[in-house]
């Protein structure tokens, strides 16, 4: 399972970076989404994958038996997903506004303030 997830994470990072390097704004958005997913999956995988081992202390025992599912990475991912959701929603609206204001979705053409007079 870990190996499969590792490959998926690698593909997501690669695709994310590749999409961000494209000139079209829509693809840049997909790049951002992929990168967010890649980071979330990475945290999930690094939190060690266990099945059927809830982090409960059994009756009569004083501590949990290793290995057990660590709930913290999931809490982190939840936070990261929510933040990512908000930020991506903002980015999509901004890019749409950019398309209306500048009249193109080509990043290379958005250089009116970069030119030296």
């Amino acid at each position: 399972m870990e190996a499969l997830l590792a490959i998926v994470i690698g593909v997501l990072y690669t695709a994310g970076i590749y999409m961000m390097l494209r000139r079209s704004l829509v693809k840049v958005i997909f790049g951002l989404v992929f990168l967010g997913h890649a980071a979330n999956l990475l945290i999930f995988t690094l939190g060690r994958i266990t099945t059927g081992k809830p982090p409960f202390v059994a009756a009569g025992a004083t501590s949990v038996v290793e290995p057990f599912a660590d709930p913290l990475p999931q809490a982190l991912i939840l936070t990261a997903i929510i933040i990512g959701f908000g930020v991506q929603a903002f980015a999509i609206i901004l890019f749409k506004k950019a398309y209306h204001t500048v009249g193109t979705d080509d990043v290379d053409k958005m250089n009116s303030t970069d030119r030296i007079e």
């Binding site: 961000m20 704004l25 840049v28 951002l32 903002f90 980015a91 901004l94 890019f95 506004k97 950019a98 204001t101 500048v102 990043v107 958005m110 250089n111 009116s112 303030t113």
Partner: peptide, 14 residues
Amino acid sequence: GTKPQIEGAIKYVT
């Protein structure tokens, strides 16, 4: 929402 601002914002946000 002026044109220079939106162009700057795209680079900044990304």
